[in-house]
Amino acid sequence: MSSAKSVEVSDLDLYYGSFHAVQNVNMTIQPNKVTALIGSSGCGKSTFLRSLNRMHELVHGARVEGSVILEGQDIYAPDVDPVAVRSQVGMVFQQPNPFPTMSIYENVAAGLRLNSRRMKKPAMDEIVERSLRGANLWEEVKNRLERAGSGLSGGQQQRLCIARAIAVEPEVLLMDEPCSALDPVATLAIEELIRELKVNYTIVIVTHNMQQASRASDITGFFNLEESGKPGRLVEIDETETIFSNPANKATEDYVTGRFG
């Protein structure tokens, strides 16, 4: 099984062209814990999340200053291949996005097959089953692995995407508002799954739902911008319980109690 790793973020600044999106973030993301990032829209939390596996580079003109150290290795060092980084830091997105041309089985196997790792069928079967079990989806789909992944319900699709992400055995799993497109029951199922996954992975989740952050995470970080046009900052990061019972910062207090949107 993969081993969860900690991530050390130091003096991270993020720019889109000349726009300064995120300013001076310092945090240690602890292994085997769920870290939730909360904050209002446009505060840079999703952008920051994407900088943890260099996904932000897909946007033209995005660049990063500072360092993100994954178990001793700065992922922004010049000799690091972003593609290799992403195989260690997996990601689950807001919209469930199983590959529509592939079956459930192929979706889970996609990460390995697309990287052209040759593998015997029984070995692949085992990985697919283990990943689907890990995503709490095996019992629901074991009899229809050859069906299209897009035929599943939204919540099942999202768990399929989680299975697909963990099939490549990353150390860190990033989730960008994974439940915002799901109904409450599916949401609770995903939250439960997140709690189980942290046994093996380091998890960072961006969410707009503060109850979700309070239910599912161990550590909560609050991002905010002082005013629109200014870069987003990490205002406070602490144990989730502290953030939701006795935050140190006034802005955090105002945000979690809903005194501003």
Binding site: S40, G42, L225, E226, E227, S228, T257, G258, R259, F260, G261
Partner: peptide, 14 residues
């Protein structure tokens, strides 16, 4: 977004 006039939970605060 942080303008003081928006207080989304006014009813609750009251």
């Amino acid at each position: 977004m942080m303008s003081p006039m928006t207080e989304p939970r006014r009813h609750f605060q009251q």
